[in-house]
């Protein structure tokens, strides 16, 4: 079971990174969303997994799962929602005013998320 979760986090992050590397606004936004799924699951997993032990106090319950990471993930979900909304409107604004949604500027500078040790710098 743990391996399933671990691999899910891995697959989500890999997909996220790949999409981010496409360097076009829409895939990059999708990529960051995928990454935020990955990191939410990861943060949740940092409290270890447990089934049928929700952290809601009940009489007679013997064990609860770790509630703290859940609270952290909740905060993180909300924050990443806000961030996504902002980046979407900014990308939209950028697209609407330029008709081009390339994230990195062609000649002037390196794009974001470009690993700097890359050998070739095709924009």
């Amino acid at each position: 079971m743990e391996l399933l979760i671990a691999s899910a986090v891995g697959v989500l992050s890999a997909a996220g990174i790949y999409m981010v590397l496409r360097l076009r606004t829409f895939p990059v936004i999708i990529g960051t969303s995928l990454l935020s799924y990955a990191v939410n699951v990861f943060l949740f997993a940092s409290g270890r997994l447990a089934m049928n032990a929700p952290p809601v106090l009940r009489d007679g319950a013997v064990r609860y799962t770790d509630p703290l990471p859940q609270a952290l993930v909740l905060t993180a979900i909300v924050i990443s929602f806000g961030m996504t909304a902002v980046v979407v409107i900014m990308a939209l604004g950028s697209w609407l005013s330029s008709d081009d949604d390339l994230v990195d500027r062609p000649a002037v500078s390196e794009g974001d998320a470009r690993a700097p040790s890359m050998p070739e710098g095709d924009a």
Partner: peptide, 10 residues
């Protein structure tokens, strides 16, 4: 700005 935000999201 978009570039800056995306970078910081990462």
């Amino acid at each position: 700005g978009t570039q800056y935000v995306l970078y910081n999201l990462l």
